[in-house]
Amino acid sequence: MPLTIAPVTPADRADWQALFRAYAAFYRTDAIAAEAQVWDWIQSEAEPYWADIARDADGAALGLVQYSLMHRSLSGGMVVYLSDLFTLPQARGKGVGRALIDHVRDFARARGYSSVRWLTAETNTPARALYDSYAPASGFILYAVSP
């Protein structure tokens, strides 16, 4: 499937919002309250936070990827953290997710970052099949606690 992947611009707000809300719904999360903040991160040149949309040949938005930089204390360097990856159900299995991951890998490689990292739900079996084609799961377990 021919795709274009391009940075989110102000003109993409409606497509970005639709994909972001669908991503939140997939994880059974209401992220509407966060939308304004995330949009500001994407639009800010001072924030090391990026969002890109994959589109088909007709320009229809099929998927979203959002990523940022993350400090790695054991290496003294930075890596790229792929925080959000989502494709519309009708685009799954057609290479959109792989294209978005490879796009972020190209971003990292071009800037000299040593790796791209991400998390997913343990139960997200279809996505994990794609992710496992890149590398085995790291074996780390995420904990999240209230302050």
Rank of each mutant, 00 (worst) to 15 (best):
Y49L: 02
Y67V: 07
S115M: 11
S83Q: 04
W16H: 01
W39H: 04
L82C: 12
A22Y: 03
D15G: 11
F26G: 01
S114Y: 11
Q43W: 01
D15Y: 02
A108D: 11
Q66M: 12
P2R: 12
V8E: 00
D30R: 12
A127H: 06
A24R: 11
Y23E: 00
A36D: 15
A144S: 13
L85H: 05
T29G: 02
L88H: 01
A121H: 14
W50L: 12
V104W: 07
Y113M: 12
S68D: 04
L85V: 14
Y81N: 13
P2K: 10
R55T: 10
A144I: 11
W16K: 00
A144Q: 14
W39A: 01
M1E: 05
I32K: 07
L3V: 07
I42G: 00
F107G: 10
S68K: 13
R28V: 01
Y49R: 08
A46F: 02
S44M: 05
P89E: 09
Y23S: 00
P48F: 04
F140L: 13
Y67K: 06
S138H: 02
L82T: 05
N124P: 06
A18D: 14
D58L: 08
W118Q: 03
S115I: 05
A57K: 11
R117A: 08
D58T: 11
I42T: 01
I53A: 09
V38T: 15
D40Q: 14
V96P: 06
A135P: 00
A6R: 13
G76C: 09
L3W: 10
Y67D: 08
L100R: 04
D15L: 10
M78Y: 13
D30H: 10
V65C: 15
A14W: 03
